[in-house]
Amino acid sequence: MKAPLHIDRRRLLVGAAAVLGGSGLARAGLPVLKAGDQKGGLRALLEAANELQGLDYEIQWTEFPAAAPLAEALNAEAVDLGPIGDAPLIFAQAAGARITAFAVNRSDPYGTAVLVRPDSPLKTAADLKGRTIATNRGSIGHHVALKALASAGLKPDAGTFRFLPPAEAKLALTQGAVDAWATWEPYTAMAETAGHARVLVNGRGLSSGLSFLAATDAALAKKHVQLLDFGRRVVRAQRWSLQHVPEFSATLARIIGIPPEAARLQFERRQQRWIAIDAQVVADQQRTADFFLEAGLLKQALVVKNTFDTSFAVV
């Protein structure tokens, strides 16, 4: 199966510029850091913790609905950096994207889950056999769905995948067009708290819970100082958020436009921590890459140790 990274550089650059927000035009003489983001991601965290003050560079933000289009933007150098899960990072790098992970966090992967409608007859992972599962191709949702099938002794083709972005996947599930939806936070918490879905299989024991800050090779070479400062601000903001759960949850809900109860649920159960890129991180990421190779989604083996830059001391 072809790796899920298809680049139309001109279209992507125009699309990214259309949704660009935040700082706008750079102040005279200041460098610009083009930051990609996902829903419920870095911008809300940094704003809530007041970590966007005192910058000696500009940040231009572009929000993406999932990691796959963010990976495309990184590959096209439409953004300099962005948060990306373990699975989409692997697919992007396997497809030749010139991006490198320079910081890592680990969280409780419960919310990376396979969801079904509340009245669904499905009870276990084994019940996914012969069912239709909506997810983003190459996403952490795709990964957890495949792992769920494997945990029940089923092959990757035991279920039928429909590759849809989160909003369309949710609609397909609620309308009964698919049997299950494999997704991640905050979409899991939003669906649960709204009564639209329940968790059939959660990611504990299936997913590493790893997520990364990845940057283009060009940004790593030219904007090392800004990337390091940005990473350290993210780490400080994360520590602040864990000590100010009510305040952060309220700010997160406001910034990304989700119900406060969903914002708090997904935040509290993730318990995200930024950690060093150590041997365990590399081993876990290699295990995920090997799983995709065995499942037939990668054409050739990926040596993940070559996809990290450990020179950034953000923690």
Rank of each mutant, 00 (worst) to 15 (best):
H6E: 14
I7M: 02
R9G: 00
R11F: 01
L12C: 02
L13W: 00
V14K: 10
G15P: 03
G15Q: 12
A16M: 11
A16V: 12
L20G: 11
L20C: 10
G21D: 09
G22A: 01
G22R: 05
G24Q: 09
A26R: 14
R27Y: 08
L30V: 09
D37G: 02
G41N: 01
G41M: 03
G41Y: 08
R43H: 15
R43N: 11
A44M: 15
L46T: 01
A49F: 00
Q53S: 15
D56Y: 00
Y57C: 07
Y57R: 06
T62A: 13
E63L: 14
P65I: 06
P65K: 01
A71S: 15
A71T: 02
E77Y: 04
L81Q: 08
P83S: 01
A87I: 02
A87L: 07
P88L: 05
P88R: 07
L89S: 14
L89V: 02
A94Q: 06
A94S: 14
G96D: 05
T100N: 06
A103E: 03
R106T: 09
R106W: 13
S107L: 15
G111T: 04
T112V: 14
T112F: 11
V116R: 06
P118V: 07
L122T: 02
L122E: 08
K123C: 03
T124P: 12
D127S: 07
K129A: 15
K129S: 15
T132P: 07
I133A: 09
A134I: 00
T135D: 03
G138V: 00
I140C: 07
H142E: 04
V144Q: 12
A148Y: 07
L149E: 08
L149Q: 10
L149R: 10
A152H: 12
A152F: 10
G153M: 06
L154D: 01
L154C: 02
P156H: 11
D157V: 01
A158Q: 00
A158D: 12
T160Y: 11
A167T: 05
E168D: 14
A169N: 01
A172Q: 04
T174Q: 11
E185D: 14
P186R: 04
A189E: 06
T193D: 13
V201F: 12
G205W: 09
L206H: 11
S211C: 06
F212Q: 00
F212K: 07
A214S: 09
A215M: 08
D217L: 09
H224W: 10
Q226M: 13
W240Y: 08
W240H: 08
L242I: 10
P246N: 00
E247N: 05
T251N: 15
L252W: 13
A253P: 09
R254F: 09
I255K: 15
I255H: 14
E261M: 05
E268I: 06
A276N: 09
V281N: 06
V281A: 04
D284F: 07
D290K: 10
G296S: 07
G296F: 08
Q300M: 09
D309Q: 13
T310I: 12
S311P: 08
A313R: 12
V314M: 11
